[in-house]
Amino acid sequence: MAQFLFLLFAIFTVLCAVGVVVNKNAVNASICLILCLVGVAGLFVQLDAYLLAFVLLLVYAGAVAALFLFIVMLLDVQGKETFGLRGFRTIAGFVAFALLLAGIGSVALKGQIVSSPPVSVAAGAQLKLYAYQLFTTYLLPVQIIGFLLLISMLGVIVLSKKHEIAEDAK
């Protein structure tokens, strides 16, 4: 059963990844990217990394890729530029492909990682453990991120709103 599920999600992920590259339409490519991330999240679930799967769905599939989709739709770039395999791009493509082959080959030839000693559950694996760590050990960074979000919000307001108030104070 586990083998079957792994194959299912793996093939689904690879097909979607191919879809991102092959699709000429930018909207379709973005949707393929989201589906690809869903497939990866499925693989994470099989590895018992529920939190990672959840974060991947929430942050990447939910927010980042959906944002891509919105931008693509807003800019309406579909089909205006066609990316052909010409000149430098061809070489870059072949180099990337060769690197990929080398990577797969080295894993296949050098074999699997031999029985590494059992690892204690990492903090990122379980939601409860993660939350405990976040609010005890890493409380200070969480607080700093709070301020970071505050200044980002202020920055967006300052940089984007119109200033008609010509400083009454002067």
């Binding site: 890493y138 200070l140 960074p141 700093i144 991120i145 301020f147 970071l148 200044i151 980002s152 202020l154 920055g155 300052v158 940089l159």
Partner: peptide, 16 residues
């Protein structure tokens, strides 16, 4: 972790 979080706060503030 703290190093990177603090550094990003500095950098993002400076972008603005």
């Amino acid at each position: 972790v703290l190093f990177f979080v603090a550094l990003e706060t500095v950098t993002i503030g400076l972008y603005i």
